[in-house]
């Protein structure tokens, strides 16, 4: 599936819930099934700065596609990254770089994050794009 299709799918899923409590419950469930980063990759270098909770993100490249792995000590944060991973894992670096992430606003997630938490989210997206840029360079070399 293309990035845009996955995003639309996420928006549809979240639209099924009436309240933010239900959306949170869903996020919590998603967090439990996150593609887990291995312990050896839980390094300081892989910590995303600017989050209230600790967030680690690691990526690998396989046949021109990027796979992401993450973890966090906060379960809601884990749910949020797992949405990002679902959107970007298995995609080509070039597609990740060119993508526009609009599901976050469409599901109303951003308005539920205080500015410093939204900052953490922006840093997660930035880190994902940095990985993509790195892999893209490697592939084109």
């Amino acid at each position: 599936m293309e990035i845009i299709e996955i995003q639309n799918e996420i928006v549809d899923e979240f639209n099924m819930f009436d309240s933010w409590m239900e959306k949170y419950e869903y996020l919590i469930d998603l967090g439990k099934n996150i593609p887990k980063i291995s312990n050896e990759n839980k390094t300081d270098d892989n910590i995303i700065k600017g989050c209230q909770s600790k967030v680690w993100l690691h990526a690998t490249e396989d046949n021109g596609k990027v796979n992401f792995f993450a973890d966090s000590d906060a379960i809601i944060t884990k749910g949020i990254i797992s949405l990002l991973i679902r959107t970007f894992s298995g995609q080509k670096p070039q597609d990740i770089i060119e993508s526009n992430l609009d599901f976050i606003d469409k599901i109303g997630l951003r308005q539920h994050l205080s500015p410093n938490r939204a900052n953490g989210l922006n840093n997660m997206i930035k880190k994902i794009k940095f990985y993509a840029i790195g892999f893209n360079k490697k592939i084109n070399e």
């Binding site: 909770s53 906060a74 379960i75 944060t77 539920h112």
Partner: peptide, 8 residues
């Protein structure tokens, strides 16, 4: 995590 409780 305190952040989770605070958010909920």
């Amino acid at each position: 995590h305190p952040y989770d409780i605070g958010s909920v």
